[in-house]
Design a protein around this nucleic acid. Sequence first.
DNA 1: CTGGGGACGGGGCCC
DNA 2: AGGGCCCCGTCCCCA
Length: 471
Amino acid sequence: MDVEADAGASRACRAAGESSHQQPQRWFNTADITVAHQSNLLKQLNQQRRQELFCDCSVLVEGQLFLAHRNILFASSGYFRMLLSQGSDSSLETVNATFDAFSPETFTIILDFIYSGQLDLSSHNVIEVMSAASYLQMNTVINYCKNFIKSSLDISVKEEDSDRGLSLSETCSFASGAGEESAEQPQPRPGSVSPPPALWTRDNSRSQSSFKDPERDVSVSTLKTSPNSPEISAEGDDLQDPQDPLYTLPGSERRRGRAAAKRRPSNSTRPGQQEDQDIQEPRSLKVEKIDELYASLPQIVGVIGHYNKDSSPVMRFKCPFCTHTVKRKADLKRHLRCHTGERPYPCQACNKRFTRLEHLRNHFETIHQARKLVCRKCKCQVTEETGHVVCEGTRRYRMCTACIQEVGCDDIPLESLGESKEEPALLLGVDGEEEGDSKRNWMMNDEDELAEDSGADLIIQQVDDSDEELQ
DNA sequence: CTGGGGACGGGGCCC
DNA sequence: AGGGCCCCGTCCCCA
């Protein structure tokens, strides 16, 4: 059942009813007629397109020519709306548009959706379709792609991919797409794949305001969303189902987990305990799914952000999940981790995982290595000699002699008052040429290797119960 | 209640 | 392309 068509029909009926208040019994019949009329009209238009009848707009995608009706494109795509409204006023003049940011196959899917309301999504094309839809500012398609990705990544869903040739004919219609793109706020579509309302509102408004015409708009290159802004958080909430073990906890949840970790006495820290799970990425991450996403990235996310001083176009890479654009693909890949929840860098000491090696390093140095030559208690500067390393679970920090005496030696577990240099360089490679390599090895080694390293005493011993989680 | 500081996440950009 | 550095924003804890 076409819900949007019904809604539109109802509106049409109400409009009709306002002009004929005395005949309310005709509303239902009119609705039926309207639905049938819309359906037939769309079929007719699609036939005309296929027969190249009355097509007044040609779209060139990587050399392949598509013919369409500018009215249809105008009503379906914010990009075309912008393009056509800026073009010639002459309705007789054929409009041309050229794209290289996506493939002809992808545009075929988009065009078929525009003319039929059916979106032929698969795990192989969803990212590219989503990127193209983003380029063309077709929020309906974007949202269906998001939901498709979300459902594909959701391991709680049974493997239903066999019938993922997702025909959205029952949940989306041309009318919905066209109307929604032009609406200030998208209409909710009861009965359809539910879009996240908050995201829709904010994301849509943002995209409409800042992502106007990728070919012309300079502002697209200046897009900047705070990584922790509510928009991104909302987006994260959209993409990251807290119930979905594929993802790390998004935004606030993640921070609550961090807060819980901080509130937890360090000496009670034991990796693998339930509390740790709050701040860690579930290990059942479907790496192959994420790899699949990455693998499909290169040719699909390039957009022309703005022009150089010499009028040469600057290529930027657009995130398929949000409006963020970056200069380099590597940066996009890094950025995507905030959407996918991928955290490939686990701290072997506390099992906390990070999106970047440098974050892991910073974490390790500050939390587990006591690299800061500052007394934890009085904040005074200490040296390697005067600042004794205090162990508190997996945490280490330095305290000056005075503070240690003030607290009492018996009350704090000192790493080595005598600064025993027998502490494993693997862990505390403060000095020496091997520091970098050894540290990296320590952080990046497999846990099996770590377990074999008997020299890595207290910290490493605390991670040996997480093997099953790391697979 | 508030300000300071720590930890962390993310973006830009250089090497 | 990856690694790394710098910077900034956010959240949280604590005095």
